[in-house]
Nucleic acid binder design. Structure first.
Length: 463
RNA sequence: GGCGACGUGGCCAAGUGGUUAAGGCAGGGGUCUGCAAAACCCCGAUCGGCGGUUCGAAUCCGCCCGUCGCCUCCA
């Protein structure tokens, strides 16, 4: 039984989809005013693992992730860079795919863009106006928060307690400071779409309601995103969606990941992208496996602080898992204790994942299994049970999206050269000409290859 | 002002009432090895502070100290 923590009820709840066997899941995607940073990656990886685990458990998952391709920040950024909004968006979308693919994040089934759903949003807004949930005002349309009694339920705050305008100025024309924009009239020079209220663009929140209801239906199983989206974004989504469809709940399970923070030393201001490490930068320095292992070493709902030191530590950990996948040396027969170790690790892994995706604990059992495998190899054991234990290790690692591949991006010439050098060194070693043998190893080290002598012969590793 | 999170060995991080407080990284000591590397074995914390509840608390309650997030830009 899979238990997931639901922000709405503030409890772990047993997860069952509405339609048996099929999960409808919507995850908030990026606002395309800038490149993705490791904080986005943290969120996408968390929900990627959720999806992988659901699929592992036999569910057919329909996964939707949106692109916010029209919004104030994008307009501003495009203008300052002398680009069109769509040029900017396209650029960041292709970069998004490059980076999420590299991070081994499974592609969603749909990547709807806000600008593709304008007619639907207009229709929703009209309907909200018709039923009294919204009001038009000089080309803008606002949602009437006070008309929605459940407002505040997700974020657990009451409209009366909120300090509206704590951070921005209140628009005095609004009926209530909490009312939020469904439609914004265009100012001169801004991109706009025609609407019954004049040219304008959608408010930020309505896009998710439109895309979610069109692609997944009026009630979906899971809606995910960062904790910073609980209020107001998701609160507003619930209000406008339920006011529109007349059906509740809009979402059965609300899942929110804790926020990734930049290193304390790097900058105090966490607001702007400039303080974050971009995915691109992270991928240049670290392997995707290490980045994933680092992020999954902490529970998804807990805030995690970005730390170069911790990612580097994860890199070493990944290396040990890879070593566990090396072949057995053999000689001592079947690895007798291994099947039990593998079963124990697998059971523990699944139990941890069932408990609100406790990946840190799940990872612990992967390492236990790796140790068991390495131990067996050291003792010269092998056979079918050894291979099966490695298969379990691969299986569990894949649920976390760890590839554990030996990266062999070397060309034929280099490979030949390596093989010749290793063979030559082997001859020297047989003749006990250690100094010459060591020289070969030193030279290869300079070329970036580390030689390791094992009972099964000499293997090389890229350093 | 309101709501909320967090503080566990050198670093990262699970555990939320009762076995010897997971796991990773780093470190020390070993085994193996011509050497090296890797792997394996062994070694380290009583859980921010104080008080309380309980037969029993890192785990529940209260207070204090510290860090952080949200309260319409934000994954």
């Amino acid at each position: 039984m899979l238990f997931l923590y639901n922000t709405l009820t503030r409890r772990g709840e047993e997860f069952q989809p509405q339609e048996p066997g099929r999960v409808r899941m919507y995850v908030c995607g990026p606002n395309l005013y800038g490149p993705c940073h490791v904080g986005h990656a943290f969120s996408y990886i968390a929900f990627d693992v959720l999806r992988r685990y659901l699929e592992f458990r036999g569910f057919d998952v329909i996964h939707v992730q949106n692109f916010t391709d029209i919004e104030d920040r994008i307009i501003e950024t495009a203008r300052s860079q002398g680009k069109t909004v769509s040029e900017l968006a396209e650029n960041y979308i292709s970069r998004f795919f490059r980076e999420t693919d590299a991070l081994h994040i499974k592609r969603a089934h749909y990547y709807p863009r806000a600008t593709e759903f304008i007619p639907r949003m207009i229709e929703m807004i009209q309907s909200l106006l018709a039923n009294g949930s919204a009001y038009a005002l000089d080309g803008d349309v606002y949602f009437r928060v006070r008309r929605f009694p459940a407002y505040g339920r997700l974020s657990h705050r009451s409209p009366d307690e909120m300090m509206s305008g704590a951070r921005i100025e209140i628009d005095p024309r609004k009926e209530d400071p909490l009312d939020f924009a469904l439609w914004k009239g265009a100012k001169p020079g801004e991109p706009s779409w025609d609407s019954p209220w004049g040219p304008g663009r959608p408010g930020w929140h309505i896009e998710c309601s439109a895309m979610s209801t069109v692609l997944l239906g009026e009630t979906i199983d899971i809606h995910g995103g960062g904790q910073d989206l609980v209020f107001p974004h998701h609160e507003n989504e619930i209000a406008q969606s339920e006011a529109y469809t007349g059906k509740a709940p809009f979402v059965r399970f609300w899942l929110h990941n804790g926020l990734l923070r930049p290193s304390p030393e790097e900058d105090k201001m966490t607001r702007h992208l400039a303080n974050f490490v971009s995915c691109q930068e992270a991928l240049q320095k670290y392997s995707p496996d290490a980045l994933r292992l680092f992020m999954l070493s902490s529970h998804y709902r807990t805030a995690l602080t970005w730390s170069e030191e911790a990612v580097a530590a994860a890199e070493s950990g990944v290396e040990r898992l890879k070593v566990a996948l090396r072949p057995a040396y053999g000689g001592a027969g079947e690895a007798i204790g291994l099947p039990e170790t593998a079963k124990k690790a697998r059971d523990a892994f699944l139990a941890a994942m069932d408990d609100d995706l406790n990946t840190p604990q799940a990872i612990a059992s992967i390492f236990e299994l790796a140790r068991g495998i390495n131990q067996a190899r050291d003792e010269g054991q092998g056979g079918g049970s050894f291979d099966e234990a490695q298969a379990v290790l691969r299986e569990l690692a894949e649920i976390l999206g760890l590839r554990l591949e030996k990266k062999v991006e070397i060309d034929e010439t280099t490979r030949k050269h390596l093989e010749e050098q290793i063979a030559q060194r082997e001859r020297l070693r047989i003749e006990k000409r250690w100094a010459e043998a060591d020289r070969i190893r030193q030279e290869l080290a300079k070329e970036g290859f580390l030689l390791e002598d094992t009972p099964a012969g000499t293997v090389w590793r890229k350093i």
